[in-house]
Computed example of a mutant assay.
Amino acid sequence: MTAPRIEVEVAYAEPHRQRVVALAVVPGTSARDAVRQAALPSLFPERDAAFFEQAPLGIFGQVLKAPEHHVLEAGDRVEVYRALALDPKQARLARARGRG
């Protein structure tokens, strides 16, 4: 008999490409462990494995303070965050100046 599993997703996006990986994990899996299981370095070879080990994580837009200890629930979507190329406030300001 196999151990029960819960369905979760792990999502990561670069400016022109994104991937959402569906996983069936054992109950008690942490958000960080799910990211490891998603094998994102093989999907985004431009990022090294260390990036995914250290990147901030969230669940449905809520940043996790301790992703190594956050236990996932069925249906959770773990999001891997990266630094923005341009601050959104600065981008809006630049667009506004261009219109004036």
Rank of each mutant, 00 (worst) to 15 (best):
T29F: 07
G28H: 09
A50N: 05
A74M: 05
A83F: 08
L93M: 09
E46K: 10
P45V: 11
V10K: 04
Q54Y: 01
R82M: 06
A91V: 10
T29H: 04
R47H: 09
E14F: 03
L64F: 06
A85V: 01
A3Y: 05
D76V: 07
I59P: 09
V25K: 10
G58S: 11
K65P: 02
A3R: 12
L57M: 07
E7M: 09
L64D: 05
V8Q: 04
Q18A: 15
V78Q: 01
R99P: 00
P4Q: 11
A96D: 08
P56H: 08
R82N: 05
T2L: 13
G58R: 12
D87W: 11
V21M: 02
S30A: 11
P27L: 07
A74E: 15
E9Y: 08
Q37W: 03
G75A: 10
G75K: 11
P15N: 09
A11C: 08
Q62N: 13
L23D: 01
G61P: 13
P56F: 06
V35C: 03
F52V: 10
R95T: 06
G75R: 12
R5G: 04
K65L: 08
V21Y: 00
L93H: 13
R92Y: 06
P4G: 00
H69N: 15
R17Q: 11
V25T: 06
Q62F: 02
G98M: 08
A66E: 14
A39C: 07
L86V: 15
